[in-house]
Amino acid sequence: MSLWSLLFDPDNSIWVYRINAGSCNGCEIETTPLFTPRYDAERFGIKWVGTPRHADVVLVTGPVTAVAKESVMEVLSQVPDPHVVIAIGSCAVSGGVFRGSYALEGPLDNLYPVDLYVLGCPPKPEGILTALLEAKKILKAKRKGQHQEKPLVVDPAGMVMGR
């Protein structure tokens, strides 16, 4: 890291808030190790916060269930700009094994623009860490106003395939 980025780069500070949108807890178990000594995300300035108002990055796990939808949307709407939303695990990305269930409102990108997808069920903590480091670049672009909204992609079956 250069001296400039050590002293003045706001993107080296990422505060993470996590939402469980009906996940099976597998993804939680893989997300928590990020803040343990073994993976230690704090060395990149990544910190866990307890309220969406402090967050820069929101991690969403689980297929958005009908019960969870309202709370998830409420929480996401309270995150101040600029922020990045990351979908963790197959469930949040596409519905995974639960895809097509009557109890789902998701996947998440049908409801809210998602910036990064971490694939896997559950993904490795390294994958989540990579996504968080990737989120730094997106945050930088958003802060400068250079971020381009991705167009909505719909597959032939009418499913939203992300932005």
């Binding site: 990064l116 997808y117 971490v118 694939l119 992300g162």
Partner: peptide, 9 residues
């Protein structure tokens, strides 16, 4: 071992 994408496509 892991993959991070910006787009589901």
């Amino acid at each position: 071992p892991f993959r991070v994408v910006t787009d589901r496509i």
